[in-house]
Amino acid sequence: MSVDKDTVRRIAKLARLAVPEERLEPMAGELNGIFKWVEMLGEVKVDGVPALTSVVAQKLKWRKDEVTDGGNADALMTNAPGGEDHFFTVPKVVE
C-alpha cells in the first residue's frame, strides 16, 4: 500500500493539520518508509487472536454519579488564547 501526495493531503485534512504544499511529497516518502516497515506484521497469523484491550486484568472502575469537582471557570479561562467572561471566542461559525 503506497501513500501519495493526495493521501497525505487527505489525512492532513482529517487531522486538521496545515501541511504546506511543499511538505506533502517529502512527507509521503517518510510515511511510505514507515508503512513499508510495518508491513512485516502481515506475516503473522492473527486469526482467532483477540485484540488487546487492557494490559492489566482489572475492570474499569465505577464511581458514584455525583459532582466532585467544578466551579473552576475562572481558573480554566486563564490559559485561553481568546476569551470573554467565561466564554472561549472563535471565528464566526454561523452566518
Binding site: 506484521l41 502481515g42 503473522v44 492473527v46 487472536v49 483477540p50 485484540a51 488487546l52 484491550t53 494490559v55
Partner: peptide
C-alpha cells in the same frame, strides 16, 4: 486492529 492482536501475542 492487526496491531492490537499482535499486542495480545506479545503479551
Amino acid at each position: 486492529s492487526r496491531a492490537q492482536k499482535l499486542r495480545t501475542l506479545i503479551k
